[in-house]
Computed example of a mutant assay.
Amino acid sequence: MSERLGPYELLSRLGAGGFGEVHLALDAEGRTVAVKLLHPHVAADSGALARLAREVETMRRVSGPHVAEVLDASLEGARPYLVTRYVQGRPLSALPAPVDDLRRLASGLAGALLAMHEAGVIHRDLKPANVMMAEGDPVVIDFGIASALDSLSVTASGAVVGTPGYLAPEVLEGKQAGLEADVFSFGATLAYAATGRQPYGRGPASAVAYRVVHHPPDLEGVPEWLAPLLRECLSVDPGARPTAAGICAKLGVAHVPSPPRRRSPGAADHAMTMEWRPGKDRHRRSVEESRARHREKVRRRWLIGSGLFVSLLAAAAREPLPEVALFLLAAYALAVVADAGVAVFSRGPYRRSRMIVDMVSVAGVAGLCFGLAAMFSTFTLALFAGTALVVGIVFLLSA
């Protein structure tokens, strides 16, 4: 059973970090969002929460295709949380490195860095684990949280503010850190993506931190077009590092102004929900409507996939075992007709289309079976069916 947190319905736990657990959720209009529920030891630090509350509005000014925008926040209740755009993908740290399209990654990260810094936001914990790869494009998550929650009590409670190897030397030495610290983290993240190695090696955090302050980074294998820029970004001297705008200029990234943010009039001053509409005429869906739409999409995929598999099996068995072929087609037709019968008595929004798809699928499977049997040999069809079975099993296991 799903859990509710304010206006959000939590669907599943996506992961956890030093500051909280991230949940996939639906908002009141049925849109998918990511809800970060802060850990109890963080929620108990009133000073850190007050600082985060002051930073939320600044964080909300950051927008763009390469950042997961902060949409909402509730920091005053018993279970404080932040809401951001949900990015469907995998973190850069979980993907094979070196990455294939390094220029695309570098350009996207540079654009994200510029969007944050133009809004006055310091990420403070930019690293491969905080870069989600969505269809080949990087999207930076968790920006501003580490900087806002950097307090002695939170750190002592168990949250590590930053990751050695990606933290700038001035941060490790406890000095005043500004936008230049993010530039260092940007360089370290790109160095990892370009080589597949940690730029300052592995080992205990203290050893890695020592190498960050006293040793040059490992940039062997970084392409020539990128290596000079990374050396500048990873300079021990913050003043020697380029700005985000300078990085974009060197990478040829065009500056696109952030669009104005529209706000919901009923939200609180410090946590108003951004209106996000993929299309001008997109109607608002409730949670129930969104679930029904998702169930119908999954049902159609299973209907098509099982139909293709049954047609392959029936076509392969048609010549040597005609009774088996007839049984497979009849069983599939009976199952689909039963599903159509359920649709007759249902009151869902997809009732009519569901019945039509069911009837078309039965006729399509029968026609495809006879067509495949006429075009291919029994051995070829059996090979196709076996391959489809293996691919289906792998897909189910991976899903």
Rank of each mutant, 00 (worst) to 15 (best):
V362W: 03
P257Y: 02
D142K: 01
F184C: 02
M132G: 02
A267S: 15
G364Y: 10
S153P: 02
S398E: 11
R347Y: 11
V208L: 06
F309N: 08
P265C: 01
L226M: 05
A78I: 00
P320S: 05
F379Y: 01
S311F: 11
R293P: 00
Y166A: 01
I304S: 12
G136Q: 05
G239V: 05
D281N: 05
H41P: 02
A159G: 11
S311P: 10
E319C: 05
R231V: 12
L37C: 06
Y200S: 02
E220S: 13
K127M: 01
L10P: 03
A193D: 08
L75G: 00
S206L: 14
V67P: 11
V213E: 10
T155N: 04
D101A: 13
A315F: 07
V236P: 09
Y350H: 15
S93N: 13
V70L: 12
A205I: 04
A156T: 08
A374L: 14
E76Y: 01
A227M: 07
L312A: 09
G89I: 01
G187A: 05
A244F: 04
A207Q: 15
R351G: 05
A16Y: 06
A112V: 07
P217R: 06
E323M: 10
A68E: 07
V344T: 10
P80K: 02
I304W: 13
A314C: 09
A53M: 00
E173F: 00
A330F: 05
A399Y: 14
H123N: 03
R51T: 06
A159W: 08
R299T: 15
A343N: 10
L251P: 04
D27H: 12
E9P: 01
K127R: 08
K127L: 04
P223Y: 02
S151N: 01
A373P: 11
A16V: 11
L114I: 01
L328V: 03
R90T: 14
L109R: 04
A366E: 10
F309E: 13
K175W: 04
I356D: 10
A25Y: 03
T155D: 02
G246M: 05
P260N: 03
